[in-house]
Amino acid sequence: MSVNQPERVRAAAAGQTAAMDTAAVTPRPAGRTLRRTTAGVPLRIVLAAALGLVLAGCDSGGSDFPPAHRDGGDLHAGDLHAGDVDTVVLDGVSGRIHVSADGDAHTVSGTFRGADGRDQGVRTKIGSESGQRTLTVVCGDDPGLPEPCAGDLTLRLPTSTGLWLRQTSGETDLSGIGGPLDVTTASDRLTAVALRSPNAHVRVTSGSADIGFSGAPGALSVQATSASMTLRLPAHGTGYAVTSDATSANVSVQVPRDDTAAHRVSLQVLSGSLALLPA
């Protein structure tokens, strides 16, 4: 073996690895662009393949939404604008969260202000997998140790964009969300109106929630622990296939029920109260 052969072997292996890495990245759909604009505030958004971030619908058995992808992403403050995405991930936020869907919106936009009223560092990362584009938002200067986004976060989404939210404390207001929805709150006051999500999974612990749908969800799963909840569903066909499991809890179902209905509602309540009412 000549002295140059090991170098040729290493070069060939590197070429094979690069080819494999290139093949593993899902191509970005044609015609979709990332807009990088600022309102007088620096903004950098890094595009990267986020393996494992596969958006899937929720069913009555649990959530298939991905956890927030925490590595990477550039730091910016203040206003943010991002190209169209399929779902937005807010993991471990606190404070006041306002997320609304708008039929005139074609991209995700928003603002974040810290509890002191000043701009606070926030990281965003856009990843793609299986044709889905996911925007993850976390706070803190260290991407490996994200901090809760404690302050006032306002986001405006296209109506078809889904939301994956984990709120640790504070207040959460949602309106008009039309994409798949997965919400987990603790010690939080959750209010949601005019939801049109085809699939939704909601978990509330030690807090309260008032959730209203303007479109009948195909699958709605709710878990409440030491919480007070009100759900409002619009009339649909002969009703909903409702199942409930209550322990030391008060559950009231006042919507029409049809065990054969395609629209399913699953309720699990532990030491709390839940009312399922007509919208």
Rank of each mutant, 00 (worst) to 15 (best):
118 R>T: 15
83 G>E: 05
250 N>S: 14
106 H>Y: 14
180 P>G: 08
257 R>T: 12
46 V>I: 13
160 S>L: 15
225 T>N: 08
178 G>L: 00
18 A>R: 08
47 L>C: 00
62 G>F: 09
87 T>R: 15
196 R>W: 02
45 I>G: 00
198 P>L: 15
91 D>R: 14
234 P>G: 01
215 G>A: 12
220 L>K: 07
184 T>A: 03
125 K>W: 05
137 V>Q: 03
198 P>F: 14
210 D>Y: 08
269 V>K: 01
132 Q>R: 12
157 L>S: 01
184 T>I: 11
173 D>K: 09
114 G>D: 13
92 G>A: 04
143 P>D: 13
194 A>Y: 00
44 R>G: 15
147 E>Q: 12
262 A>P: 12
261 A>E: 07
166 R>N: 06
193 V>M: 09
8 R>S: 02
239 G>T: 00
240 Y>S: 01
158 P>R: 11
264 R>D: 06
52 G>K: 11
138 V>S: 14
256 P>E: 11
124 T>K: 15
107 T>G: 07
16 Q>N: 07
8 R>Y: 04
205 T>R: 05
171 E>Y: 02
137 V>P: 00
208 S>Q: 07
147 E>N: 04
166 R>C: 02
158 P>E: 11
103 G>D: 10
169 S>K: 08
97 I>Y: 01
122 V>S: 03
176 G>V: 05
14 A>V: 09
172 T>W: 05
46 V>Q: 13
119 D>F: 12
214 S>V: 01
206 S>E: 06
274 L>I: 04
19 A>W: 10
98 H>D: 13
54 V>N: 10
18 A>P: 04
95 G>C: 04
170 G>T: 06
